[in-house]
Amino acid sequence: MSSATEPLGRAGRASLGGYYALLVVFLYAPLVVIVAFSFDDSTIAALPFSGFTTRWYRAALHDPTLLDAVRLSALIAATNAVAATALGVLASLGLSARRVLLRPAVTALLVLPLVVPAVVVGVGLLILLDEVGSGPSAGALAAGHVVITVPYTVLIILPRLRTLEASLTEAARDLGANQVVAFWAITRPLMTPAIVSSLIVGFTLSFDEYAIASFLIPPGERTFPIFIYEGSKVPQQRPELLAVASLVIALSLLLVVAAEVGRGRYERRQVAAGAG
């Protein structure tokens, strides 16, 4: 392809590159600020710096309220990841069948949570809990998170399942395997990456969810986002919050990089296996 047919000239590429760099600064500036002030020896995040300290980290790691919040969030997030992935697998297997009753309606229903604003989901579940006569609870919150997670799990698992079908059907025919054996021996291992992605997404979505949690959290209990929200209103607690935030930032960036590296490895291996 000659360079003149490229959609970007040299000047265009340079200026868009500059724009990209600016956006990266914009996107990372708040993260840098959080990390910088988490080491600042003052309760007010303002210039000039007052001195270096790691005491906020120590305080954060010894705060029972915070640890309880993280524990509750982790529990809800894990429950959500497993339940939503299970439902996602069922939905994907169902949708990949040739005949599905009311397919358009069912498909629409499965992605509906994506287009219903979170505040409506929260309010609806609040009314539902009132109708069945039970108050807010951690279980109800997990159930609510499953609602908003199912579309994501379906969108992750279903496409993967479709790419498998062609090869699978051949294999199944050649081997004369029945469907259950075929699923267990062939589909399941090949589905593993999609299921792992689905679990990760389910965990992350729930762990970071505030809107629905704010409606369904039982009195006196807090998930991690609720802890952050409440903490943002107490200035004395803010430095500790910045320390927690720095840890979260470090951890999530690490996970993103690890996931990317892992994905790259996996794909290269697949390619190598395919070639061999």
Binding site: G88, L90, A91, G94, S96, R99, P113, Q179, T187
Partner: peptide, 22 residues
Amino acid sequence: PPRLGQGWLVAPPAAYLFALLI
């Protein structure tokens, strides 16, 4: 070619969303 899934498998997730969303 035989397909993997059975249509009725969508029932549990659909019922779940029906009960907790619709």
